[in-house]
C-alpha cells in the first residue's frame, strides 16, 4: 500500500515534466522565387507558354536547378540568401539568357527549433534578350508561399 501511494505521488510529479509539447519544426523553410512564362500573341493578349526544354543554373554555381526539363510553364528558383543579387542562366531549348535579380534580404524568425529564414523583396530585374522579350515583376515579396513573382514574356 505504501509503495502504491509513493508511485501515485511520483506519477503526479512526473506528469508535470512529461506534459511537454513536441518542439520539432513543422513550418516550411523553403523560400523560392516563382517565374512563369508567357507568349505575347498581340499587344493585348498573352498566353501561358510551356517551354519544350529548359535548363536553369545559378551563375557561378555548379549545381543545375532544372536540367533539360520538358514542358514547364513555371519554375521555382532560390535567391541568394547572403548576397543581395542572384544571377541565373536560363536555356530555352538551345537559346541562353541571363537574368539578374537585385533583391533585399530580410531575416524572418520562425521558432527556436525552426530557426530563421531569409525572405526577399525584389528590387530590380535585368535580363538579356535572346529568347526573352521582357520581364515583369508581378509580386515583389518572396517568402514560403511559392507564388509567381516574375512573368517572362516571349
Amino acid at each position: 500500500m505504501k509503495n502504491k501511494i509513493n508511485i501515485v505521488l511520483i506519477l503526479f510529479l512526473l506528469l508535470g515534466i512529461s506534459c511537454t509539447v513536441d518542439e520539432g519544426c513543422r513550418k516550411s523553410k523553403t523560400v523560392n522565387m516563382g517565374i512563369s512564362f508567357y507568349h505575347v500573341v498581340n499587344k493585348d493578349t498573352t498566353t501561358v507558354m510551356k517551354i519544350d526544354s529548359i535548363t536553369v543554373q545559378g551563375l557561378g554555381v555548379d549545381s543545375i536547378l532544372y536540367n533539360n526539363t520538358k514542358k514547364l510553364s513555371k519554375i521555382l528558383v532560390p535567391l541568394n540568401k547572403i548576397v543581395p543579387e542572384s544571377r541565373f542562366v536560363i536555356t530555352f531549348d538551345t537559346i541562353k539568357d541571363t537574368i539578374t535579380i537585385e533583391q533585399t534580404n530580410k531575416d524572418e524568425y520562425l521558432s527556436l527549433e525552426c530557426g530563421c529564414i531569409k525572405v526577399h523583396s525584389i528590387d530590380t530585374v535585368l535580363t538579356t534578350n535572346h529568347f526573352i522579350d521582357s520581364v515583369k515583376i508581378s509580386n515583389h515579396t518572396v517568402n514560403t508561399t511559392n507564388a509567381e513573382h516574375l512573368q517572362i514574356y516571349n
Partner: peptide, 9 residues
C-alpha cells in the same frame, strides 16, 4: 541562429 544557403553557398 544559423542561416545556411544550400544552393548559392
Amino acid at each position: 541562429l544559423q542561416i545556411t544557403d544550400g544552393y548559392w553557398g
